[in-house]
Amino acid sequence: MNRELESLDAVFREMPDLKVEHTGPRRTRIQVEADALPTLLELLKGRAGYLHLSAISCVDWPDTEEFELVYHLWSYQVSNLISAHTRIPYDPGRYVSVYDLHAPAVYFERDIHEMFGVWFEGCPDQEPFILTEWQGPPPMRKSFDTVAYVNDTFEWREYQPEWANDPSGGKG
């Protein structure tokens, strides 16, 4: 146990620019520059036992025109979850795939590509999965307005219930 914890410290020593924060029991948040993230993941996997890529999340930040990518990594050995946060600019909206390091990444990268339009260099599969017949913009972006889309696409049902003739029903 201690050995693994030390190895995590060794990872942090090796990458001094990380912002590390322990946010709760078994939760560590790391802020990392985009170009350093693959190295971090490799070190975490190779040296500290963070084998399980639980998920990759994407967050749209239109104010700064950035996507935030969050890699959630779990270590079965020390029971700790690291969420590694990094940001990439809208333009060009490209990032490197971590598929070669964590095979499950392909699923999440494909999802993010489909929903946010981020292109992952080296990802073996970025075919549409859910939105196979969708022509519009990546819908999870904040700029996609669901309500406007619904109003443009669907009709609101008009009802003519009987009670509308006498809503008070004698209660007035």
Binding site: S54, A55, C58, V59, V70
Partner: peptide
């Protein structure tokens, strides 16, 4: 802030990554 909550569901590991911008609605739920 942002958190990653996990639960053991009958099917495996369930995770919710929730981001708040401090507003009345979630900013992102993955």
């Amino acid at each position: 802030g942002s958190v990653y909550a996990r639960t053991e569901s009958s099917k495996g590991e369930l995770g919710f990554f929730v981001v708040s911008k401090g507003g009345a609605k979630p900013w992102r739920v993955h």
